[in-house]
Design a protein around this nucleic acid. Sequence first.
DNA 1: ATTAGCACTCGAGCCCAAAGAGTGCTAACA
DNA 2: TGTTAGCACTCTTTGGGCTCGAGTGCTAAT
Lengths: 344, 344
Amino acid sequence: MRMDERKQKVLAAIVQDYIIGGEPVGSRSIARRYNLGVSPATIRNEMADLEEMGLLEQPHTSAGRIPSDYGYRYYVDCLMAPEELTAAEKEYIQRRYKQKMHEFEQMLEETARLISEMTAYTAVALGPNQKKAYLEQVQILPVQLSGKALLIAVTSTGLVEHRLFTIPDNTTEEDLQRLSKYLNDSLQGKVVEDIHRSILQDLYQEVIDQRELCNQVLEILRQVLALEGSKKIYLEGAFNILSQPEFKDLERVKKLLAFLEKEDALRRVFASTPEKGLSIRIGQENKHEGIDRCTVVTIDYNVEGKVAGKLGLLGPTRMQYSRVISVMNCIADCLSRSLQQFYR
Amino acid sequence: MRMDERKQKVLAAIVQDYIIGGEPVGSRSIARRYNLGVSPATIRNEMADLEEMGLLEQPHTSAGRIPSDYGYRYYVDCLMAPEELTAAEKEYIQRRYKQKMHEFEQMLEETARLISEMTAYTAVALGPNQKKAYLEQVQILPVQLSGKALLIAVTSTGLVEHRLFTIPDNTTEEDLQRLSKYLNDSLQGKVVEDIHRSILQDLYQEVIDQRELCNQVLEILRQVLALEGSKKIYLEGAFNILSQPEFKDLERVKKLLAFLEKEDALRRVFASTPEKGLSIRIGQENKHEGIDRCTVVTIDYNVEGKVAGKLGLLGPTRMQYSRVISVMNCIADCLSRSLQQFYR
DNA sequence: ATTAGCACTCGAGCCCAAAGAGTGCTAACA
DNA sequence: TGTTAGCACTCTTTGGGCTCGAGTGCTAAT
C-alpha cells in the first residue's frame, strides 16, 4: 500500500487531534475539523488502510483510532511542522540563563527545572562525561582549626570534588604541602579515566615517608575520581507525569516512578542515545522496562564545539512533539552559550 | 464522660487493628480478637462513647469506626506500647553506618534512605543549621590551567562550599594569595550568621588595591555564606506513599507530591518543630496544606551533645507509630554517634 | 451494668437496559 | 474507479435497580 498525500493528511490530522485531546479520533471529527474535501466514509477507508499499514490502532471496535508508535514515528519524521516558540517564550528562556549561575551543577539543575516547567513533562540533565576530562588541579588543604584536611580535585569541565579527612597524628603541615605538590605535579593535566589504580600505586611507591597519610590520600583520590566518572544526574518534574491521562492507572505510575528512582537505570537510558544532536525514542523503541509507553527525547549540549553532556525529557508517547523539539533546541542552545561564557 | 480502663482498651484495640488492616473496625471483630470479656454490644456502647468524645469517627453509618486525629494522639500519648526493634534490625542499622561515609552530606543522604527503607514512608534529613556554625577556613586557590580560581569555605559542621570564578586579567597569583590570607585571618572562627554584608564591606574598605578582584570575591563569599544558611535537605522514598491505600485518590497524591517538590515548604514543616528530641504531628496538627491527613515525625540528631539537625518522616496518620518511633530513635542515635566519630 | 435480639442504614457488587460513538460493509452514484 | 450515503453492528459508558453483607443503635430482658 502506498502512502499518498491524502493518507498523510489524515494521519497528521489524527496525530494532532489525539495529541491535543487524548481521546481516540473518529472519522467524523476529522472531516469536520479539517477541510479535506471528502466525506467521513472516505476518511474511514483511509483510516482502515493506515491501520493495516501499522500506523494507527483501534482500542476497540467502536472507538476512533489512535496513532501507534510507528504512527508517531512517521509523523515526527515526515509530517510534523516545526512549531516556533513565541518571542516571549524565547525571551523567558534566555532570561532564565541571565541570572547569576555560579557553578556548573547549578546550571544543570536549573536547566532541568526549566525544561520540566516549559513542557510539563519530566526533565533530566546529565553532567558531562568526566572520564574524558583532565585534571586541572589536585590540592590538599589543611583545615587549621580541626586537625583535618581537605582534598580538592578540579577537572577541566569545571567540576569540583572535595573530601574532608582526618590527618594522621604525626603529620606536619609541611608533609601535607609536599604531598599536595607532588600529587598535583604528577597528575595535573592527566585525563581522568587514565588515572587508574596502577598509576596511583606508582605514586605510592615513590613517596616513601608518611605511609599512613599517603595511603589515606591515595584511597580518597581514587574514590573521588571514580565518583567523577559517574555523571551526576538532575531530575525535575517527576510528578508531572501524574497529570497525564495515560497515567491514571496507579500500577503504571508506580512502575514508572520506580524506574525514575533508580539513578543508574536513568543514566543508562538517557546517556545511551548514540545519535548526535536531537534524538527521539518513541514507545517501544525504548528498551527499558517501565517506559515502553513513553517517549524519551534527548539533546546534546556543547562546550567549545564539543559535545559535553545531554539534556533529556520523558513524557507519554502522546507528546507535543513539535513544541518539545523547539523547547529542547532552544534550551540546549542557551545552556551551551551560557557554559561557553562560563568557561570563556 | 470519663476515660475508664475499658474505654482505653477498646480505643487501643481499634487503633491497632486499623493501623494493621486499614479498614474501619467493627465491634464484633474487637470482641473476637481481644479478650475483653464483654459482648459486641457492650463494645458498641463504648465505641459510641469514644466517638462522642471525639476519639473515633465513622465513615458512614453502617461501617466500623476509625480513629480520629485525637484518637491517634491519645493512643500515642497514653496507650501505645513501645515496640522494640529486633536485634537483626538494630544490627542492620548499625551496619549501614559502619560502611565508609566520607562526607557529612553523604551521611545525611544515606540516613534518609535508611529511614525510608525501614519504614516504607517518606523520609527527610535536614542538614545542621549553618548559621550558628563558625568558619573554619576560607581560602582562594588558583587553578593553574584555566585562569580561574576556587573559593573554598569550610565550616565547623564539616560542610564545604566552593565556587569557581574567573580571575580578573591583571591579577597575579600573589594578589590571590594575599587576599586569601587576609580573608582567612579576618573571618576564621567567626560565626556564619555574624558575617553580614557590613563586615564584608569593612574588609572591602581595607583592601585598597585589586578592586575588581576584591569586589568579585566578596560578592561570591556573601553568596556562598548565604547558601550555607539555607540548610540542605535530603528527601527519600517520596514514591512510597503511592503504596498507601489512603492515597488511592490521585488528587490527593498530586497535592502531596506538589508539597514535596517545594523545598522551602518542606524545610519549613520539618525544621519548625520546637520540641527537643522526638516530635509527632498528627493530621491536622500539621498546619501546612496538603499534609493535613499525614503524620510528621521528626527527631533531633546531636553532635557533641548539641542539637545539630533533624531527621523527619512523613506518612499517613494511619502509621505504625510504635515501630516508627523505635526506628527513628535508633537511627538518630546511630547517626549522632557516627557524626561524633566523624568529628572526633 | 450487660447483653441478646432486631430493625435499620449504607456501601459494594452485579445485572441490565439505553444511549452514544464509531465502525465496516454494501450499493448507488459520478 | 473512486466517493459517498445509508445502515446494521459492535462496544463502551452510564445509570437504575437489585441483593447481600457488615455494622450499627435501640429496646427490652437479665
